[in-house]
Design a protein around this nucleic acid. Structure first.
Lengths: 173, 173
DNA sequence: ACTAACATGTAATCTGTTACATGATTGA
DNA sequence: TCAATCATGTAACAGATTACATGTTAGT
């Protein structure tokens, strides 16, 4: 997320944090104790450059810039996304938010296809004797709610993914 | 999740792990390095009792039991759920999976209402100049997809929550 | 004057991830 | 006999959470 937002332009850590929380729908807070060490790690790796603004030692203002290496790293992470980056809805959503930055359409489509493939394999959340329970078999109303919501979610996303993959089939880049 | 599954009956850590991964829809792995320390913490707190099965020192078999204190703790966590437990979809789903165990219907309904309240406040994921962007205003097709999917998800869950809260209005317990 | 928002960090603690390590049981 | 699954853990490292700590700027 840090690399992605900085690819849109330089900004302060404080602004970065606001955007991160917005992208989560304010469902998850981003603390400074998480953010600043993360920025420091990216800076140490050479992906982010920290430019000191008009600041005193006590009240410093630092503008974060994405380096060329940082942009390359962003592309690489988008391209090679796998595992929980594909299967976990939250993580995939973060990926999607920056996927348009990946220049190669074939690579972007490949990411969408991996997600669609995962969503297409029939998944349940509750099992009995090894086989999945249908919504009708579940007596617990709350658990039935989980299945109902998950189905609607999966359906909506699969429809969108399918539309994306077919609609842009003939367009270049 | 550990307290919840053990409330259904005693089981091995290995079996616990399988159910945890199922509940995540296999979207997120649960490693033993996470699981066993977590069990050990719960055991140290007196919420879980570990009963040694027919095991040698090398190949031990341990059955996990929920203690009375553990059950009380489970109820308490369900009852007092707030913050990310309500706002984060993943966490709330885990809560829902065990919510029927909470004896008091009024308390169960209160949890549902907190979720409904969060989902009802208009949320976007992208902002410009401080105000939320509508789906039509977003040119990036991937980000538009995020909004479209999120809307369908929110709609489905809100419908279900509303139905749950009105349907059971007259029934006791 | 005061409050809220802007702005950046550190320290202690807790939790999660990954790799390592061992051994039993069941079915092909 | 060989592989997969069952079964339980530890150690090193990375990352997240919470509380602490400081100071500025803009609006009421």
């Amino acid at each position: 997320m840090i690399l992605g937002f900085l690819a849109e332009g330089p900004m302060h850590g404080y602004e970065l944090r606001r955007r991160m929380e917005q992208l989560h729908g304010y469902a998850h807070p981003v603390s400074f104790g998480t953010l600043y060490p993360a920025i420091a790690r990216l800076a140490a790796a050479g992906f982010v450059r920290q430019e000191s603004g008009p600041g005193t030692a006590s009240a410093r203002r630092i503008t974060l810039h994405l380096t060329d290496a940082g942009r390359a790293e962003l592309y690489e992470r988008l391209r090679t996304a796998e595992g929980t980056d594909i299967t976990d809805g939250q993580r995939f959503m973060v990926l999607l938010a920056f996927l348009s930055m990946l220049p190669d359409k074939a690579e972007r489509d490949a990411v969408l296809r991996r997600r669609l493939e995962f969503l297409s394999q029939p998944a349940s959340f509750f099992y009995e004797d090894g086989h999945p329970l249908k919504a009708d078999d579940i007596s617990d109303p709350y658990r039935r709610g989980i299945l109902v919501s998950a189905r609607a979610t999966s359906r909506a996303e699969r429809d969108w993914l399918t539309a994306m993959l077919t609609a842009g089939a003939k367009e270049p880049s």
